[in-house]
């Protein structure tokens, strides 16, 4: 751990590395755009923690699963990756609903560790099923022209694909936030998150609500997975790292605070890209470092946890 730190300090002190405002702003913007995608990764985790008090260790593997399913749809139909969402999202919803009904509902509320260990097993199963079905090779979703197009902005070039994915991420956050805070179903969700026992007393069917929740969570995961697959090559082993980025976004933002998760994602994205500027291999390392430092400074997260 000492060396990367030394390296950072050295790079910062080296006069040859001139401070370039343009590079700085470009890195910042790209970091924010990447972070918006991480925020979308984190959203599902934030929802399952906030509402069901359940951490899903297989969350990252679901992101990768979604990307593979999308690639299967793209290959077997004429649809592009974005159009594949039409088929992918209902499929993801059903997968989530089934998992909650068949597995997760048996362990949620028992103790906090049972869901963790169960989904840990599930994570291993998904990773190896993907490896069995699609081999260990990396693949990516064909983004076509989108991957190459960029917007020129005062000498900087910003990719169109990252812009689109950030816009989609914001739209999803806006929609889910509205659903939870402005709808009758959302009231039931908040009630269960507040006090599951009393929610049952007023007639809320918590287990059924959880099944729909997990379905919805996997829909957000499905959207994230297509945007991710168009941008980055993935392999069956990519899941755990997705989980960690999602987790960092959630904890940084403050638990049970959806927009907090969004900001948390942005911070991780920006840290990673500035880290990668210092040393290409150290991008994620700096994301983790910022996470740890933030944890020491503000253990309760950057924002007060309004319940979501």
């Amino acid at each position: 751990m000492a060396r990367p730190l030394m390296l950072t300090i050295m790079r910062l002190l080296t006069p040859t590395l001139e401070f370039d405002m343009l590079v700085f702003i470009e890195t910042l913007i790209n970091g924010l755009l990447l972070g918006a995608l991480y925020a979308l990764f984190g959203m599902g985790l934030s929802l399952s923690l906030g509402v069901m008090r359940m951490i899903n260790i297989a969350h990252g593997d679901f992101i990768v699963l979604g990307a593979y399913l999308s690639s299967v749809i793209v290959m077997s139909t004429d649809l592009g990756p974005l159009a594949s969402l039409l088929l992918l999202l209902p499929l993801m919803f059903v997968i989530g609903w089934l998992l909650q009904v068949v597995l997760f509902n048996r362990v949620v509320g028992r103790d906090p560790l049972s869901p963790l260990l169960l989904t840990f097993g599930l994570s291993i199963v998904i990773q190896n099923l993907l490896q069995e079905g699609f081999s260990a090779d990396t693949r990516s979703l064909p983004a076509g022209d989108l991957a190459l197009q960029g917007v020129e902005l005062g000498g900087m070039s910003i990719g169109v694909l990252p812009l689109i994915s950030a816009a989609i991420s914001i739209a999803v956050f806006w929609f889910i936030n509205r659903l939870i805070h402005r709808s009758p179903v959302g009231a039931a969700v908040r009630a269960v998150a507040d006090d599951q026992e009393t929610a049952r007393l007023v007639g809320v069917n918590d287990k059924r609500l959880f099944a729909y929740m997990t379905g919805l969570i996997l829909v957000t995961v499905g959207i994230a997975s297509v945007l991710y697959g168009m941008r980055t090559p993935f392999s069956p082993a990519s899941g755990p790292e997705r989980l960690i980025f999602s987790f960092e976004a959630v904890v940084l933002g403050g638990l049970g605070n959806l927009w907090g998760t969004f900001i948390g994602g942005l911070i991780i994205g920006v840290s990673q890209l500035f880290g990668a500027r210092i040393d290409t291999g150290l991008g994620p390392f700096f994301g983790h470092l910022v996470f740890l430092l933030a944890l020491i400074a503000r253990p309760q997260g950057l924002f007060k946890g309004g319940k979501s």
Binding site: A187, R190, A191, A193, D194, D195, T198, A199, L201, K307
Partner: peptide
């Protein structure tokens, strides 16, 4: 229920 147990987020 005892203690009212209203939902604070609602």
């Amino acid at each position: 229920p005892e203690g009212r147990r209203l939902f604070p987020s609602l």
